[in-house]
Amino acid sequence: MSHPMHDVLGRWKAAFDGHRPGAMAELFTEDALFQGFGPAVVAGQDAVRAYYEAVPDDRRAEVTVLHTYTVGERVAGGFADVTFSDPTGWEAKVHMSLVLRRDDNGWRILQYHVSRVAAGG
């Protein structure tokens, strides 16, 4: 059986690559904490949707899951390396960490954080 991190990130990648902000927001809990490229932490599905609506629709993500963990039956998470890119050659490498929570809707993202990988690092 696959770890929930693999499933959630597979759905996240499909929604991101398809530029579907509504589908992205549905992957998150209603009270999710989210920190993307900006310095501010935002909360909730509406903030997540707004963040992804602002992402150019030609961006894609390559995801490599590095580590997963499970705490009981309702909490899981892990770490991944993600490379965002677009057809112009723009690229941004990040470390991603997720905390997942299982509820009546399945596994969803409770906490999302990315940090850019410095050039040469």
Rank of each mutant, 00 (worst) to 15 (best):
S115V: 09
T64P: 00
G89P: 14
G18I: 15
V75N: 12
G78H: 05
L110W: 15
T83G: 07
M24G: 07
D86K: 08
R74P: 00
D58V: 13
R60L: 01
R116H: 05
R11P: 03
T83H: 03
E62K: 11
E30R: 07
G10V: 06
H6I: 03
L33D: 06
V114S: 03
N105C: 14
P21E: 14
I109W: 10
G89L: 15
V82H: 05
Y51V: 08
M24Y: 09
A61H: 11
V55Y: 02
A25K: 00
V117G: 07
F84A: 04
F84P: 00
F16G: 03
V114D: 03
V75K: 12
Q45P: 01
Q35T: 07
W12T: 15
H95T: 14
G38M: 02
P21S: 10
F84E: 04
Q111F: 12
A119Y: 10
V63M: 03
Y51R: 07
V41G: 10
E91R: 15
G89K: 13
A43C: 07
S2L: 11
R20S: 10
E26N: 06
R108Y: 01
W12H: 14
E30D: 13
A80R: 07
R60K: 04
R20N: 14
G38P: 00
A54I: 02
S115I: 10
L9P: 01
R74G: 09
W90N: 13
A47W: 13
A50E: 09
G22Q: 14
V8E: 10
S97K: 06
R101E: 14
R20I: 02
V41H: 06
F16H: 15
D7I: 00
L9C: 02
D86C: 08
V42A: 10
V55G: 10
V82W: 04
G44W: 15
A61C: 12
R102Y: 07
L66Y: 02
Q35D: 01
A43F: 06
L66N: 06
S2T: 09
D7M: 03
G44C: 13
P56I: 09
A40F: 05
H95L: 13
T70L: 07
D104H: 12
A47K: 13
Q45L: 02
G36S: 02
R60H: 04
V63T: 11
L110N: 14
R101C: 00
A80G: 09
G44N: 06
R116E: 07
W107T: 08
H113M: 05
